[in-house]
Design a protein around this nucleic acid. Sequence first.
DNA 1: GCGACAG
DNA 2: ATCTTGTCGC
Length: 230
Amino acid sequence: MSLPIVHAHEWDVSTAEARTIQEQLASKVQTTHLDETYDRPVRTIAGIDVSIRGGIAQAAVSVLELPDLSVAAESVHRCDIPFPYVPGYLSFREMPAILPALDQLAQDMGALPDVLVTDSQGRAHPRRFGLACHLGVVLNHPSFGVAKSILTGEPLGTLSTEKGSTVPLVDGDEQVGVALRTRANVNPVYVSIGHRITLEEAIDLTLRVSPRYKIPETTRHAHRLSRQET
DNA sequence: GCGACAG
DNA sequence: ATCTTGTCGC
């Protein structure tokens, strides 16, 4: 069974149209707990990354099993770059490559991994609809984003240097995510929810898959995969 | 108008 | 993101 939504999306849009799509889909984001989706602990988590080379986008997904973080599956998909890089519209550039890769993965595994993680913002976005939200809503699947820098908002207060410490990431009067220290004395990452997950759960998962490095192991694997030649 | 700006 | 070697430091 493939993911029907993969072929049901129109990505050839203008920035103005993309903005309208984001504003309309942003209201569909669900902030429910993972236990409303699963009656068991999270077992698989997918790291997703896209590399751009020579006008071609290559998306890679690597699935890790919890709690041991062993690699359970991988998938890669290439396509032409459909959209330029415009801050705030990353999903329109990367999702056309990501969705087919996830489709293939779902066929290989029989289902999507429990949670999807992307190198991006989720709700910490000008219209509260970053790539992590877009992916989650389109697939109606739990997702969240882990970014290395801020797109919008600012840390509320000073983050202590200890591993696991957090500080709210606020945009105007609302909290859109957190700055999270995944390792002592290294720059923080910015975590925000995508869909069907809580910020607390996203933070917990990020720490569980980042026992050695600043960024999640899922992301490291996917990043290397996405840069592989063929 | 000026500066900021995920990957 | 990508172009790219060595190097300083825990």
